[in-house]
Amino acid sequence: MPPVISIAGLSKTYGTGFAALKNVDLEIRKGEILALLGPNGAGKTTLISIVCGLVRPSAGTVTVDGHDIISAFRATRALIGLVPQELTTDAFETVWATVKLSRGLFGKRRDDGFLEKLLKVLSLWDKKDTRMMHLSGGMKRRVMIAKALSHEPEILFLDEPTAGVDVELRQDMWALVRGLRERGVTIILTTHYIEEAEEMADRIGVINKGELILVQDKAELMASLGKKQLTLLLAEPLAAVPEALSRHKLDLTEDGLSLVYTYETHGERTGITSLLQDVNAASVRFRDLVTDNSSLEEIFVSLVTERA
């Protein structure tokens, strides 16, 4: 499937001399959910802002659906909806007025029926005549999403969409994003919540210090970089790892009641069989064993610290 967004050699150096993006290449597939992870100041928002036309690139090209974002800005911007990180709203305007403005700005004819449906989906319909300044933070966040969706975009950028929102709203947003994906909308989200990326994304991109470290299918990433842990819950506490088990690189928990064995999931031999044989030979008795996958968060931290 051809990419809906192609980014090639994209760099951005601000007037202060800060290089926010360094030669980034990225292709985003139509209909996928791509999560961009990265610490604060990594360049995620700059990347999104360039594609949306809010920041001018220093070098490189970006095409959206085959159109250049600068020479054919009308064609590209009409396809994109943006939910920015900051809760920027017209305090004195009503929800209805501000959403109607958004639809008009993107060249769409007035369609009150569509906007009504949208506000109902986002549980905003009963607030349509409320001024923005009287809404809670969560409600404002919903309005920001309504504004971004008001012109029926084919690509949606969500910049930290669930930052500071409660669990209920976060679940609602995830459901909404899934619904949009089912309708073929391409979604690019940046997030600090790794669980969000883990839950939602088809692919993960990791940005650090302006460089795109990797972009990979989530499942592949988890498989190739993931580690598993086997924990033996001991019947009796140990003071130290027995000498007979020293070759297995085991960790003993502080209470001496668990032996933790970490192994690579993509390795040809996990070493579990020989470990269990040695445990038996050393007469170490265990009452249970559990295995645990490393989370995306651990993968992310290891990637970022590796390159720091």
Binding site: F73, A78, L82, T88, T89, S102
Partner: peptide, 11 residues
């Protein structure tokens, strides 16, 4: 207020 982002990102 920052709402100019919408004007600048619109076609």
């Amino acid at each position: 207020t920052g709402t100019i982002y919408e004007i600048l990102s619109a076609p």
